[in-house]
């Protein structure tokens, strides 16, 4: 079985796995990082969203071989030194979480947007999360939370 080396949550790791494994499978089953969820397996729901080189991508549509040498960030890598990331704080403040299943992917999509565009308009926030389906919140408090991050 091949060895794959990549940077995961700011640490270089090497794993031995099979080429038919998706990044999602490796994260959840081999690395125990279960914050990344599977909701549809076809790139529609965004529950499996991770950042690949700072871009939001569906980890259900990435084979593990494709991340060799790349940077992957999952929800587990977002807060540093026990301090919540500003997006996480605002999600709490605005009640942007209900069942929480879409939340990790949603937060990562928001983080990717803000990384690229620190002061997005509301329409841009909505566009950035169309790939993250949420059935509980109607998105309103999520959008409010992301907009609030821009206010500091």
């Amino acid at each position: 079985m091949p060895k794959i080396t990549f940077n995961l949550n700011n640490k270089d790791i090497t794993i031995t796995t099979a080429y038919n494994r998706r990044l999602l499978d490796v994260l959840r089953e081999e690395l125990g990082l279960t914050g990344t969820k599977e909701g549809c397996a076809i790139g529609e729901c965004g529950a499996c969203t991770v950042l690949l080189n700072d871009q939001a991508v569906n980890s259900c549509l990435l084979l593990i071989g494709q991340v060799e040498g790349q940077n992957v960030l999952t929800i587990e890598g977002l807060s540093t030194k026990g301090e919540l990331h500003p997006v996480q704080k605002k999600f709490l403040k605005h009640g942007a979480v209900q069942c929480g299943f879409c939340t990790p992917g949603m937060i990562l999509s928001a983080h990717a947007l803000l990384h690229k565009n620190p002061s997005p308009k509301e329409e841009e926030v909505k566009e950035a999360i169309t790939g993250n389906l949420c059935r509980c919140t109607g998105y309103k408090q999520i959008i409010d939370a992301v907009m609030d991050v821009t206010k500091g």
Binding site: T49, A56, N58
Partner: peptide, 9 residues
């Protein structure tokens, strides 16, 4: 096309 995650790939 699709959504942002799709367009990124």
């Amino acid at each position: 096309v699709g959504n942002l995650q799709i367009r990124n790939r």
